[in-house]
């Protein structure tokens, strides 16, 4: 069985928010849209976005890590948002594991959003139906697009390619490999939702400097004569040994 998902590499995400607005622009005019914005030019503007990038600080100064953390629907393998939906509007596709909302069935009861521990469903306040990341289902199967572009909008936009897309059930896929190689992990594993999206942790490159790299045979100071030679009169072994 196929399970499409995103794998997000926190090691390179710089928090640029490109995935946030590329998602918005694709989806507002796509099969999930339109995605309304309220008070767009007034106090406390708010709107429907499928993807948010948050910032966390880990540790204390000066050992602080700033972590940018993009989050959209994780397309859980066992999605609690689906069985609770009274209308069947919330569903998981058997073919590719994408969790979707059927906007024509949804009654806007919000119950599914309560059932999602990750806070990724958003009620569109204008259409009054539940929305969320569709994994750009209206792009990834669009045969009018060149193969390389049949990817979610956020994945294509991401300047650091921190967002990988693929089938996590296919052990040979790039996403599976990335999860395996880089200790990819799911969010809130404690709830058994088995999120399909995974996150790759920060990986640190450190160096070790060895003393002998600092004392060098190719030291140019030798050429310019500045590694001082001791004066002849300075004491030496010659003065004390006589074998």
């Amino acid at each position: 069985m196929t399970q499409l998902a995103l794998v997000i590499d926190l090691n390179v995400c710089v928090g640029c928010q490109a995935c946030v607005t590329s998602c918005k622009q694709w989806n507002t005019s796509g099969s999930a849209g339109p995605l309304a914005d309220f008070n767009p030019y007034g106090a406390d503007p708010t709107g429907t976005f499928f993807n948010r990038v948050q910032t966390f600080e880990v540790g204390e100064y000066p050992n602080t890590q700033t972590v940018h953390f993009p989050k959209s629907c994780l397309h859980c393998e066992d999605p609690p948002c689906v069985p609770v939906c009274p209308t069947g509007a919330s569903y998981k596709r058997a073919t590719d594991g994408i969790v979707l909302v059927d906007y024509d069935k949804c009654i806007g009861c919000k119950y599914c959003s309560w059932a999602c521990p990750y806070g990724v469903r958003e009620l569109d306040e204008e259409r009054k139906v539940m929305t969320k990341c569709t994994l750009c289902v209206d792009r990834i199967y669009d045969t009018a697009l060149p193969e390389a572009e049949r990817k979610p909008a956020c994945v294509l936009a991401c300047p650091t390619s921190a967002r990988l897309f693929g089938d996590i059930h296919d052990p040979a896929s790039a996403v599976s490999e990335a999860i395996r190689k880089n200790a990819g992990y799911p969010l809130m594993p404690e709830w058994g939702t088995k999120p399909s999206n995974h996150y790759l942790p920060r990986r640190k490159t450190a160096v070790r400097i060895h003393e002998d790299e600092l004392v060098r045979s190719d030291n140019p100071l030798k050429i310019d004569g500045l590694l001082p030679k001791p004066a002849k009169a300075e004491p030496s072994l010659d003065d004390v040994t006589s074998w």
């Binding site: 640029c16 928010q17 490109a18 946030v20 607005t21 590329s22 918005k24 622009q25 694709w26 005019s29 390389a148 572009e149 909008a153 294509l156 936009a157 991401c158 300047p159 390619s161």
Partner: peptide, 21 residues
């Protein structure tokens, strides 16, 4: 939809938050 042009030497297809808005 505005997307990065993959054949462009500068951005190679990617786009930022502003460009996407």
């Amino acid at each position: 939809f505005i997307e990065g042009n993959p054949d462009h030497p500068l951005n190679q297809g990617v786009l930022c938050a502003k460009g996407s808005s």
